[in-house]
């Protein structure tokens, strides 16, 4: 842990905020500029936020896994903060992908929700990572917290390929992936370019969010540490009379 004075006095950057705004704006303009799909019509525009949101959930949980593994190897709390930050962002994007999926499903499929493999497994993944965030609140011991959540962070990532390939491995209502598959992509170039812009923009947004979320994690760890050192008397300061009752 860096000394308290260093972090609090480190100038906070405004660039991540600006980056997030630009990335969001670029995605919006690109997805409104492209032509509608011949079958789905304007509804196909929902894809340009639904797919990047799902992609970011995958990416964020992979980063959590990698950072958790690094923590278990190096025992450096900086890796724990990266893992936790990525998991929180991942949960937000998983929720976003589910919500956008529901809004897309109602006018296309005809229902908001159904229990097919893809939707069920995505819901389970969402709750497991909510559990990860809850687990981090069960102790104030930074190292114990880091170790417990790192183990879960490594194990929980198996759900990511399960969610992604569920539409290939099992018979589902959700269509198979358009991207991230071995077969050639079945999409107009203009739409593919738009989706590419949206995915890249969202990824940039994720990186900017990570910068800020890690800054927050560092501050929170410092507060926890400060509270704990405040409880422990400094050596040589213990000049009060010994509390005899406590031993009895």
């Amino acid at each position: 842990m860096t000394p308290r004075e260093q972090t609090i006095e480190r100038p906070t950057s405004v660039w991540p905020w600006i980056t997030m705004g630009v990335a969001g704006t670029v995605t919006f303009i690109a997805s409104m500029a492209v032509g509608p799909d011949a079958v789905q019509g304007q509804l196909s525009r929902i894809m340009y936020v639904h797919v990047p949101a799902a992609w970011l959930a995958y990416l964020a949980f992979f980063v959590t896994m990698a950072a958790s593994a690094m923590y278990l190897w190096r025992k450096d709390l900086a890796w724990d903060r990266r893992a936790a930050s990525s998991a929180e962002i991942g949960v937000v994007f998983t929720g976003l992908a589910i919500g956008l999926g529901m809004i897309w499903a109602k006018p296309t499929w005809g229902v908001w929700w159904t229990w097919d493999a893809r939707l069920t497994l995505t819901a389970i993944m969402f709750f497991v990572y909510l559990g990860y965030l809850a687990l981090r609140r069960t102790t104030t011991d930074l190292n114990a917290r880091a170790k417990r959540s790192a183990i879960l962070g490594v194990l929980a990532v198996v759900q990511v390929p399960l969610v992604h390939f569920s539409v290939v491995w099992w018979r589902t209502l959700h269509q198979p992936p358009t991207l991230l598959k071995p077969e050639p992509i079945d999409m107009d170039t203009s739409m593919l370019v738009t989706l590419g812009i949206a995915v890249v923009s969202f990824t940039v947004m994720y990186v900017a969010m990570m910068f800020k979320r890690i800054e927050l994690a560092r501050l929170e760890d410092e507060i926890t540490e400060m509270q704990q050192t405040a409880d422990v008397p400094i050596a040589g300061e213990a000049v009060t009379a010994p509390a005899l009752e406590r031993g009895a």
Binding site: W17, L43, A53, I103, P107, K212
Partner: peptide, 26 residues
């Protein structure tokens, strides 16, 4: 278009709320 509007409103509301929450907590 109403569905598209609903989707984008939901998307950007969630993102902005989350980003504001990070800023507030910092």
């Amino acid at each position: 278009w109403n569905w598209v509007f609903l989707a984008y409103a939901f998307c950007y509301t969630v993102l902005v709320t989350y980003v504001v929450s990070i800023a507030a907590r910092i």
